[in-house]
């Protein structure tokens, strides 16, 4: 072993904040990338011992198995309320929620809007893949017009099912929001930008500046019925025009972090 160390140099390893376990995510799913980036950020910021995560209901319901930090599992959509309770009684801790589009933008819209609006000093990672993955591919609040899902077999008809919700644009209007950005993870450049945003979001919380939310335009190869590569191309071609990447709210003081 000692001999090997002399010959080899570790250039890539599992972040400390990521548990040594196999995830249940489908091949090609972006969840794995986002998990890793969050864990890297926790390591780099040295906050593993004071971070508390909150898992949603959805594909990432078991996220608490994958991060090596204290974790709670919330009721569907209620993660921001639960995070509020956890953070308010221990403001020195770093509290984040990890939520999908059904969880955050449908059943939990009330909780996210009010948590952001109160300027809760917590961080949300919002994974938007325009579909309910865990239940098998039903329409999500963020499903694109015309998109076929198992509950919009003829494509999402906006006259009947309404329009896809743009969460960042909406919550960025709230005074309690400090940092609201949309990123994706479809190529190394975007992954690096996402990592930077995750770091910034945590720093915003550590500095006590208010709510930070990072939306990740994500994929679902399984329920979209595509290969992983195709799904990334589909994001670029179909999702990014509707959900443009960018910074929607960067409050005063955030840029200096």
């Amino acid at each position: 072993m000692a001999e090997a160390e002399k010959l080899e140099r570790v250039v890539f390893s599992r972040p400390k904040a990521l548990s040594d376990t196999t995830t249940h995510y489908c091949p090609g799913c972006i969840h794995g990338i986002v998990h890793r980036l969050i864990a890297e950020a926790i390591d780099e910021l040295g906050i593993q011992e004071r971070t508390i995560g909150i898992a949603p209901v959805g594909c990432s319901v078991l996220a608490y198995h994958y991060f090596d930090v204290d974790f709670a599992e919330a009721a569907h959509g209620r993660a921001p309320a639960m995070a509020t309770g956890l953070k308010r009684v221990q403001p020195d801790k770093i509290v984040f929620t990890y939520q999908g589009d059904g969880d955050l933008a449908a059943i939990g819209t009330n909780e996210i809007i009010h948590a952001v609006n109160r300027g809760e000093n917590i961080t949300t990672f919002f994974i938007n893949n325009a579909i309910y993955g865990m239940t098998g591919g039903q329409m999500a609040p963020t499903t694109l017009p015309g998109q076929v899902t198992t509950s919009t077999p003829f494509g999402r008809d906006v006259r009947a099912a309404g329009y896809p919700l743009r969460v960042c644009e909406m919550v960025a209007t709230l005074s309690g929001a400090a940092y609201v950005v949309r990123r994706t993870a479809i190529n190394p450049r975007e992954i690096r930008r996402l990592k930077k945003a995750i770091l910034t979001a945590f720093k915003v919380q550590m500095a006590g500046l208010g709510y930070s939310l990072v939306e990740v335009v994500s994929n679902c190869p399984t329920n979209w019925g595509m290969t992983p590569i195709e799904s990334l191309e589909w994001i670029e071609k179909n999702m990014l025009p509707y959900y443009p990447l960018g910074d929607f709210k960067v409050a005063e003081g955030v840029e200096n972090l």
Partner: peptide, 26 residues
């Protein structure tokens, strides 16, 4: 100590859940 007027009873009970998870009397 912490007082918070929630946006609904749904949120209130989940805030309670969060605070209870932190191990305080809530």
């Amino acid at each position: 100590r912490v007082f918070l007027q929630a946006e609904s009873e749904l949120a209130a009970v989940n805030m309670l859940y969060g605070a209870a998870c932190a191990g305080v009397r809530a």
